[in-house]
Design a protein around this nucleic acid. Structure first.
Length: 571
RNA sequence: CGGGAUGUAGCGCAGUCUGGUAGCGCACCUGAAUGGGGUUCAGGGGGCCGGAGGUUCAAAUCCUCUCAUCCCGACCA
């Protein structure tokens, strides 16, 4: 591509609306422009990066035996009613009515459509397994779209769905996809980690997220320093603590005037936060529930949600909490609380603790869990968020916490959808059985954003070779000079011939402007043809990432560049 | 949805408190010089000051409403 004929509108300054680096750089480098909140046009340069990701995704999906198709974006509401998700999916599902008053929605994901397709088309175990995928625009009406392509409402996704005859088959498919995903992100040149994850709204019981390691990540993950264990903090399991010998002192009320916060109560009573139990009120699908965790811990809402099998769980406001409990906020405790109580396992293992007295300005001490208050056994469990001081649940090793950007997510879905939608096949024994499903997603546009979060410097983007729209940029620093221009043109033609994607900066711009743009665009290799060519007949080859440069004779460049590019391709 | 902030030329911003008829830098157009890290000089074009209503002789500026965008939160009772 000739720069003079390209459409790469670069900006000198960061746009005011962009906060994170990938958003700023994608705007500045002419990759994207915003149309409305969370909705972007992919300009040619950004699109080219997306296409690179797509290509790798296709190759690896196909290699793993998946087959590409394309499903509609507009979907009938009835299909979503059948799966039960028309209500459950919530306001993120954009709904509308067409001219015939038919209720419809924009597909945020395609389990319903694919399940409908398969139940109509496949009837025998002989046809299984089958694994289908598409790369398509999704729409999710996010509460708060942000950070450019990182969390858009409209975004490009690879979504795949597998159908197996039984659980064992589904697991084989699952691990095939796990392997394919590792290959995909490795080939993209990203530093990532596969972590155990919560399966969220989609449901199911086995799930991994693929996290690109970058500071701006919206997720926190824990990884064991000693073994392979890694998990999203939402999911990270905490080993059951050894129960302490229950205390024998009798429970008593203490005055704690005006002390509502954990820190205040602890300071006042001269105890550690770990000796106190806090009582948090939530609304699970509208029903109030109290959650007990130690004073120094944080409730992990996803875990509570899963324990209660709730669709939606939110912290109650003071007013809602009061309405539910008739007890004064700030002094809530489990003793005599008239609503459902869930307790973190650690709480029930405490010898004794301090809790709110359900009475203004008072707390209770020497409270023995299980003696002074009861919690149903099925409401006791791992409900708190993992802390950096926790040990690996698998091997007991030290845990490290890192920020990550979720770029891929795979689920073993089981038969939830197939049962709800009556998607059955006939097995060898003549029995009707539901398909055992799996689903596999990659945020293709987000991969590009995550890549930039992970690969940039103060001058701009630093594309890894596999995702770079152009591997090489040629700077013609003498568009007025016949010799320089002839050399640039010749190299341009030769590199293209060699199958390299190359951008020729043939604009009548000052050298400074060309250098700045080349850096901003993050093209991995830069060839500069100017003075040195006139004096020594040499061309400068500079690597964007390392900044190393060498002066090379033009005739040896094609071979050299092919080698360098080859060397920079992972795998 | 709650809280905060911001909407003035394509982009980044000043002007708003204290009302007087719109400005700076970059970009763009013309000309000249320049040509290895966003070059210089001269000249020029471009704005319903987010929108609607109100107050006033007069509104970018004050008031009311609205729309949009961005950030934080929606766990520490």
């Amino acid at each position: 591509m000739r720069y003079s004929e390209a459409f790469i509108p670069t900006l000198k300054e960061d746009p005011a609306e962009a906060e994170v680096i990938s958003h700023k750089l994608m705007m500045r480098a002419g990759c994207i422009r915003k149309l409305t909140a969370g909705v972007y046009t992919y300009l040619p340069y950004g699109l080219a990066a997306i296409r690179r990701v797509e290509r790798i995704v296709r190759e690896e999906m196909n290699r793993a035996g998946a087959i590409e198709l394309m499903m509609p974006m507009v979907q009938p509401a009835d299909l979503w009613r059948e799966s039960g998700r028309y209500i459950k999916y919530g306001p993120e599902l954009l709904r509308f009515t067409d001219r015939h008053e038919r209720e419809s929605c924009l597909g945020p994901t395609h389990e319903e459509v694919i399940t409908d397709l398969i139940r109509k088309e496949l009837h025998s175990y002989r046809d299984l397994p089958v694994n289908l995928y598409q790369i398509q625009t999704k729409f999710r009406d996010e509460i708060r779209p942000r950070f450019g392509l990182m969390r858009g409402r409209e975004f490009l996704m690879k979504d795949g769905y597998s159908f197996d005859a039984d659980d064992a088959g589904a697991e084989i498919t699952y691990w095939k996809m796990h392997e394919a995903y590792k290959r995909i992100f490795s080939r993209c040149g990203l530093r990532f980690r596969a972590v155990q994850a919560d399966s969220g709204t989609i449901g199911g019981n086995f799930s991994h997220e693929f996290m690109v390691l970058a500071k701006t990540g919206e997720d926190t993950i824990v990884a064991c320093a000693a073994c392979e264990y890694a998990a999203n903090v939402e999911k990270a399991a905490i080993a059951a603590p050894t129960p302490a010998q229950p205390g024998t002192a009798l429970c008593e009320t203490v005055e704690t005037p005006g002390k509502k916060k954990v820190a205040d109560v602890c300071a006042f009573l001269g105890i550690e936060a770990s000796e106190l139990v806090k009582t948090m009120i939530y609304l699970a699908d509208g029903k109030p529930v109290a959650v007990l965790v130690r004073g120094d811990r944080e409730v992990e809402l996803v875990k509570v949600k899963n324990m209660l099998k709730a669709v939606d769980i939110v912290p109650a406001t003071d007013d809602e909490a009061f309405a539910a409990t008739r007890m004064p906020p700030g002094y809530l405790g489990p003793v005599g609380l008239p609503i459902v109580i869930c307790a973190d396992q650690e709480v029930m293992a405490m010898a004794e603790c301090v809790v709110g007295a359900n009475e203004k300005n008072s707390h209770l001490r020497h409270v023995v869990p299980g003696r002074d208050f009861q919690v149903d056994a099925n409401r006791i469990g791992d409900l708190r968020r993992v802390a950096a001081t926790d040990r690996c649940p698998r091997c007991g090793g030290a845990l490290e916490m890192t920020e990550g950007i979720e770029v891929g997510h795979i689920f073993k879905l089981g038969t939830g959808y197939s049962e709800a939608m009556k998607a059955n096949f006939q097995d060898a024994d003549g029995q009707e059985r539901p398909f055992v499903m799996g689903c596999y997603g990659i945020g293709v546009s987000r991969v590009v954003a995550a890549c930039i979060e992970q690969n940039h410097d103060e001058h701009g983007m630093v594309f890894p070779v596999p995702l770079a729209p152009y591997q090489v940029i040629i700077l013609n620093l003498g568009v007025q000079d016949e010799k320089i221009t002839a050399c640039a043109e010749e190299l341009y033609a030769e590199l293209q011939q060699a199958g390299i994607d190359v951008l020729l900066d043939d604009r009548d711009e000052r050298p400074g402007a060309k250098f700045k743009d080349a850096d901003l665009l993050g093209v991995p290799f830069r060839l500069t043809i100017g003075k040195t060519f006139l004096t020594k007949g040499l061309v400068e080859l500079r690597a964007r990432r390392s900044g190393e440069s060498v002066e090379v004779a033009p005739e040896s460049l094609v071979t050299l560049l092919c080698q360098r590019i080859e060397a920079a391709m992972p795998e």
